[in-house]
Design a protein around this nucleic acid. Structure first.
Length: 151
DNA sequence: GCCAACGTTGGC
DNA sequence: GCCAACGTTGGC
């Protein structure tokens, strides 16, 4: 069982959207480090859902991996902004997962709070200049985040 | 809206 | 392989 954190701009795709749709393919990630983490995700892993680029950025809830190691279909779609002409169906460059809504936390855990409670070593998210949209969370840190969410 | 930090691209 | 230029991310 692994824990992850996935970022999304709520104006693009929010946890509310996931709640409505129940499941979603986490497509459009075009960063190699983030993709490598997506490749490591396994069914039933949990992912904290983080809202970025918003008034109060922070963790808003939890999702769970339902399918792993899926080729991101947008890489083959010439009309998609995520189209990758160099990727082939025989060896797709971009893999991702399908996530399912688990829960909304009773209140948001703001980035400010996360910065106060975790060091950059514990949580890459709070490292200055961090831009990674998918990152691993140690189970110890995950438990502390859950405690913050539901004291 | 600003801008620091970062990743990618492409010329050399 | 280096690195300047550029585009993007994302907090503030």
């Amino acid at each position: 069982m692994n824990y992850w954190l996935i970022k999304s701009e709520p104006s693009v795709y929010s946890l509310e959207n996931l709640k409505t749709e129940k499941q979603a393919i986490w497509d459009g990630v075009r960063n190699y480090q983030a993709r490598n983490y997506l490749r490591q995700m396994q069914i039933d892993d949990f992912a904290f859902f983080y809202h970025s680029n918003t008034k109060v950025p922070g963790i808003v809830g939890l999702a769970q991996v339902k399918e792993a190691g899926i080729a991101d279909p947008t890489q083959f779609d010439p009309d998609s902004p995520y189209y990758d002409s160099k990727s082939t169906k025989d060896s797709p460059r971009w893999q991702t997962v399908i996530v399912e809504f688990v829960e909304n936390f009773p209140h948001l855990i703001s980035l400010t709070t996360l910065k106060q409670d975790f060091t950059a070593e514990e949580l890459i998210l709070v490292k200055k200049g961090n831009r990674l949209s998918v990152m691993p969370i140690s189970s110890e840190v995950a438990q502390r985040i859950l405690k913050l969410a539901k004291p």
